[in-house]
């Protein structure tokens, strides 16, 4: 009896003897599992971070370092001139501002439209609701590439119900302006809009019905209930949807190539960065030399870093909200 009462004052050795060796085995097993776990986690994190670290070290090298086989990871001639060159070639300032405008504007429009639609699907009963929700799933599943050729022509010879042809005698070309893309976003057909509708609907479905009913009893209309009762609570999911769409919009090349032929945005500039470099090298050398493949790839790495840095900063600021609000929705299908 005294032994069990004093068990916390006994030494580890004695306790181990009492348990017949079980304690030691359990402890060792625990330590081994922990070590394995740590190694695995370290490896997986390294796996993801390594390309980024590589890009950083690559971006700090001079061109001659690239061909030096004794240099692997650390640059010998430390330089930050690559960033200056990439910024000049991408017209970083203009492109950054445009990207900010496009991504911010489009995400905002998307968010407003998707919130309305998601709320409608979550809280109202109406005929054909199942059918329309099936259409939302369809929008998630149908890749935009399937309809891209038709969309391209649709906006190239844009005509709203034959109106323009009747007035001006010809259709108008909306490609190259940002208007079609904003229109599509407002119609929930932009980049991954189906997913946002799905997430937002999932969130609103979880809100207790009593909250809504209490608002109705107190004399709130449908719209003011939505704006004054439901929206303030939904802030986390709305913020994360906005950030998702902002980030994806920032790096998207499909819709920007399709619609914004003349607008300089970062993702487009990044896509053509290698070409602008070779053009630049040709021009300053008077056409006698060309940019090497290695140099082009280096400038690509620099460009990726420069494009990604703003959104990584944004992500680090909002990281907590990002993951947590998503787990709040308790996505079910």
């Amino acid at each position: 009896m005294s032994k069990t009462a004093n068990s916390n004052t006994l030494t580890f050795k004695e306790r181990n003897r009492l348990s017949g060796g079980y304690l030691l085995r359990k402890k060792t097993l625990g330590v081994i599992i922990n070590i394995c776990f740590f190694l695995l986690m370290f490896g997986l994190c390294f796996l993801i971070l390594q390309p980024i670290l590589n890009k950083i070290s690559l971006s700090l090298m001079t061109e001659s370092d690239l061909y030096d086989s004794t240099i692997n990871l650390l640059p010998r001639h430390f330089t930050i001139s690559n960033f200056g060159l990439a910024a000049q070639l991408m017209e970083y300032r203009v492109a950054f501002r445009n990207s900010l405008l496009v991504s911010g504007g489009v995400s905002l429009v998307q968010l407003i439209a998707c919130t309305l639609v998601g709320y409608g699907f979550a809280r109202f009963d109406f005929p054909l609701k199942k059918f329309w929700f099936f259409c939302v799933i369809l929008v998630i599943v149908i890749p935009p590439q399937t309809i891209s050729s038709a969309l391209y022509l649709h906006f190239y010879y844009y005509d709203f119900m034959g109106l323009f042809k009747a007035i001006k005698g010809s259709t108008i070309n909306l490609r190259g302006s940002m208007l079609p893309y904003f229109l599509m976003s407002a119609g929930c057909m932009g980049l991954k809009d189906g997913l946002y509708i799905f997430l937002i609907r999932q969130y609103f479905r979880g809100v207790p019905k009593e909250l809504e009913e209490a608002a109705y009893v107190d004399g709130c209309g449908t719209l003011s209930t939505f704006i004054r009762i439901m929206l303030p609570d939904a802030k986390p999911i709305l913020v994360s949807c906005f950030l998702f769409s902002f980030v994806w919009q920032w790096t998207d090349s499909f819709y920007t190539n399709l619609f914004m032929g003349r607008v300089k945005v970062l993702s487009r500039e990044l896509g053509s960065l290698a070409d602008s470099l070779s053009y630049y090298v040709q021009r300053i050398s008077g056409g006698s030399s060309q940019a090497s493949v290695g140099y082009m790839q280096q400038i690509n790495a620099v460009g990726v870093l420069m494009v990604v840095t703003p959104i990584i900063l944004l992500y680090l600021v909002a990281q907590r909200g990002f993951v947590e609000s998503l787990s709040q929705t308790g996505i079910k299908m």
């Binding site: 439209a113 309305l116 639609v117 709320y119 409608g120 699907f121 809280r123 109202f124 009963d125 109406f126 005929p127 609701k129 329309w132 259409c135 939302v136 369809l138 929008v139 149908i142 399937t146 309809i147 891209s148 050729s149 038709a150 969309l151 022509l153 649709h154 229109l183 599509m184 407002a186 119609g187 929930c188 057909m189 509708i197 449908t222």
Partner: peptide, 28 residues
Amino acid sequence: KRAVSGYLFILPFILGFLFFMVKPFFQS
């Protein structure tokens, strides 16, 4: 009334779906 307001809420989706999905879908 609820059904009507429900439809009003999902109106953006219906319009977008018809103009920017169904039409190009069959067109392509």
